[in-house]
Design a binder for these strands. Structure first.
Lengths: 149, 149
DNA sequence: CGTGTAAGGAATTCTGACACG
DNA sequence: CGTGTAAGGAATTCTGACACG
């Protein structure tokens, strides 16, 4: 069960999943000529083992491209859009740290509700926070006394 | 900013990202002949518009394959591994509900720490839970009095 | 049941060049 | 600066068949 817990994180990260240029274009709505240009300018990066072979973009890059496009659509120039994406990137990092540190367990209780354990309160280590997800997908937050390990 | 908040969820979901059979094989460590067989048996599904064209597997399917492989590696037969993955799927659903409902905002505070707002306590709606992520990536959980909207 | 391999055709993807502005 | 298009070659991917057990 521990190995599966660990897997949840790996599954979330999915760092190793790579997509090609045309797939990247498809899922971001950015044309491949744009992507090629952005890459030439060093705004985004891909892994390409040899010349004339497929580009491999990480999912991170896909998100990055989506966000750059978001700013472009707002009317910013490409340079500014790239700059704004870079500033924003810190938030993504925060999110990823949160997920890998705070999702301490996912279980089902006897009622069939899902429980997501988030760990102890920093100010009161005798209590931990968990989220309850009921059958309708409603989520609520709760405190409970910490169980002994 | 709201559009970007929404985007965080879409980014997380990444439903629309599809990968080919060989990429799926690569990232899961399951051979493509296995994948073909599993698909023929109806254990996994792909989108394939026409005959002899590329399969498109969702990231969900990639996770599914990884988990089936996990059980196979434990010594279960394929049928049992598939069955166990199905039972386990409820947990993934819980996780996704948690993310889309509970990540109510990601910000940086004046110290440069990241804050992930998780929403109000069910038992005490005057207080909300948030996680703090410091520069070292350490995360801690806190309560605070709810701010007015 | 469950997976591997070799072979060939089919579909996809990539690139550099050129255009426009 | 920033993006689109047409063209052709190059690399990738897919499939059905067969093997083994």
């Amino acid at each position: 069960m521990d190995a599966l817990g660990k897997q949840f994180r790996e599954i979330f990260k999915s760092d190793d999943i790579k997509i090609g240029m045309s797939e990247l274009a498809k899922v971001t709505g950015v044309s491949s000529s744009q992507i090629r240009y952005w890459e030439r300018k060093g705004y985004i990066h891909s892994q390409q083992d040899q010349q004339n072979k497929n580009h491999h973009f990480s999912l991170m890059t896909a998100y990055q491209v989506r966000i750059i496009k978001f700013y472009l659509d707002q009317g910013y120039t490409l340079q500014v859009a790239v700059q704004k994406e870079r500033e924003r990137r810190a938030l993504g990092k925060v999110f990823r740290h949160f997920i890998s540190d705070r999702i301490q367990g996912i279980e089902q209780d006897s009622d069939g509700d899902g429980l997501v354990r988030l760990g102890k309160l920093d100010d009161d280590p005798t209590r931990e926070v968990y989220a309850r997800v009921d059958k309708n997908g409603q989520t609520t937050l709760h405190l409970r006394v910490v169980q002994e390990d």
